[in-house]
Design a protein around this nucleic acid. Structure first.
Length: 496
RNA sequence: GGUCACCUGGCCGAGUGGUUAGGCUCAGCUCUGCAAAAGCUGCUACAGCGGUUCGAAUCCGCUGGUGACCUCCA
């Protein structure tokens, strides 16, 4: 399998550090607010990576953190609320926020049908590990303490180690161009980053440390927790491209000092979701929360979009390309997914033709397209090409079902391959699910059978008014009847 | 300002030297009582200008445009 390593900026053959096992770490959410559309991308992207690695037979330990330490705020409440000014219950309780947004996050992940990570460690649950790591870095001489805060000495690090390789930074440029920010006078250099921050008196989240009460810096949690659960050196670290600098660059530096080796063998970064060509982000004011996307409740949205439509829309594009949001694009994905899924359902109902014919051209095409899907996934997780091939196969399935292709056009063996391949790629790898309601309601299917029967009788009488009324009114209720060529009628039910 | 990307048909998007990507939309046809669904067919693009090459969307250069990072950020 080939994957693109952001560190070397080229595709490389994947060889796990420990044969048969893969350590995968992905930067998780900061649970101080609701996830938006942009956040959906890494979690879906790396869910597919996780699924594919498992499919290849690797035993994967997938670690995705929950960042629940740092700066928190909600509406007018912040973690800087002065202790004396408000009653306890009026003040922000960080764990209350963390609980709320972690719950929302988990529900969103489930809606996307993302498999759960193996471990979901929280930053607050690993304060001691982070402190221990900082102590090690100080002992090695690459960090210094100022007024209860600890900073990493980037200049010294860069003198002895390659720095900036991942993000393409040159230290001298950074020293010149890094902006002047408040409260940075403690640092020796502007490029230094905090390992530990002393907590001002009004800061609620605080832990004791060798340097006084405070809280961990932004980057250290990922390094401490990935090392704890995956080892000092592990296989794949994923996240959004916007984390390249300074987050991942800092992770490399601090881990290299603390553990004596570069922490990650393969770095993977997904590209951004844009809206009108611009990255979705708080500062641009163009955020669409996922809950809004699913409900349609947002001024930019023309309609609600099902989580599976969003998942499909994301997977139709290669993960390293930007992906532009628009209603038109989402609606296109919705129609496309419906068509593909209905072909899949039709495929499940197909049985081999009467005379198992000899292998024909169609058998060869199907075999080739099925085999290609594995190649596409092995080539840096090219889900876009996998989906294209599924669409290439859909007309064959529909043709067999609809009678445009003769019954024996495909051999039984090939049909089985096709069924198996669709199931594996659509469900197991892409992680897609039906977006219309299942046909599992016995009472409803009986009712529909009655209506279909009445309509059939009406058609025999050429009572078009009645037959069309049944068809149109059901459609209005979200139930679409589909007349087969041989008189059979199938239907799909919109999920409420 | 520094660094790095990107610019594909009405829209979304694959694609790194020679092949129809694919999806959505649209038009025509088949099927149908009419539709829908499905099938078939059509719409053949690579920002511009140079260069390399037998041959470039694909490599190189220049120009223009857009974006990302440099600050919390998926």
């Amino acid at each position: 399998m080939q994957l693109y390593n952001s560190y070397t900026r080229q595709k490389e053959t994947f060889e796990p550090i420990t044969p048969g096992y893969v350590g995968l770490y992905v930067c998780g959410p900061t649970v101080n607010g609701e996830s938006h559309l942009g956040h959906a991308r890494p979690y879906i992207t790396f869910d597919v990576v996780h699924r594919w690695l498992r499919h290849l037979g690797y035993r994967v330990r997938y670690v995705r953190n929950i960042t629940d330490a740092g700066h928190f705020e909600e509406n007018d409440r912040t973690d800087n609320d002065r202790i004396g000014e408000k009653a306890k219950l009026e003040k922000l309780e960080p764990m209350e926020l963390v609980h709320k947004y972690t719950g929302i996050f988990h529900r969103l992940m489930a809606a996307f049908n993302n498999l759960e990570p193996s471990i979901e460690p929280t930053a607050t649950g690993h304060i001691t590990e982070q402190i221990a790591m900082i102590e090690k870095i100080i002992a090695e001489g690459y960090a210094y303490e100022v007024n209860g805060s600890v900073y990493f000495d980037v200049k010294k690090y860069a003198a002895h180690h390659p720095y900036g390789t991942l993000s393409g930074r040159i230290l001298d440029d950074l020293l010149e161009t890094t902006r002047e920010l408040e409260g940075q006078d403690e640092k020796r250099e502007k490029v230094d980053f905090a390992l530990w921050k002393a907590a001002p008196p009004q800061h609620i989240q605080r832990w004791p440390s060798p340097w006084g009460e405070g809280f961990p810096g932004w980057h250290i949690e990922c390094s401490a927790m990935s090392a704890k659960y995956l080892g000092d050196r592990f296989d794949i670290h994923g996240g959004g491209m916007d984390l390249l600098f300074p987050h991942h660059e800092s992770e490399i530096a601090q881990s290299t000092i603390a553990h004596g080796c570069a922490p990650v063998k393969y770095w993977m970064h997904n590209n951004m979701i844009t809206i009108n060509g611009r990255k979705m982000g708080r500062s641009y004011g163009n955020i669409i929360k996922l809950t809004e996307l699913f409900s349609g409740n947002h001024s930019l949205l023309e309609q609600p979009y099902h989580p599976m439509v969003v998942r499909f829309y994301i997977l139709q594009t290669h993960y390293r390309s930007t992906l532009d949001f628009s209603n038109e694009a989402l609606q296109g994905s919705e129609r496309a997914l419906k068509r593909l899924w209905e072909a899949y359902e039709a495929l499940k109902g197909l049985t081999p033709g009467p005379s198992p014919k000899e292998r024909g051209e169609m058998d060869e095409e199907i075999e080739r397209r099925c085999a290609e899907m594995t190649e596409f996934m092995n080539d840096d997780f090219n889900t876009a090409k996998v989906i294209a091939n599924l669409f290439e196969l859909a007309p064959i399935i529909n043709g067999l079902k609809g009678g445009q292709l003769p019954e024996g056009a495909v051999s039984g063996k090939t049909l089985t391959l096709l069924q198996e391949t669709f199931r594996i790629f659509l469900e197991d790898i892409l992680g897609l699910q039906a977006i219309h309601a299942g046909d599992d309601n016995e009472a409803l299917s009986k009712v529909l059978a009655v209506l279909i029967d009445i309509r059939k009788e009406a058609k025999l009488r050429k009572d078009w008014a009645t037959s069309d009324a049944i068809r149109d009114k059901l459609l209005g209720a979200g139930i679409q009847l589909k007349d087969g060529k041989d008189g059979t009628v199938t239907y799909t039910i919109e999920k409420a």
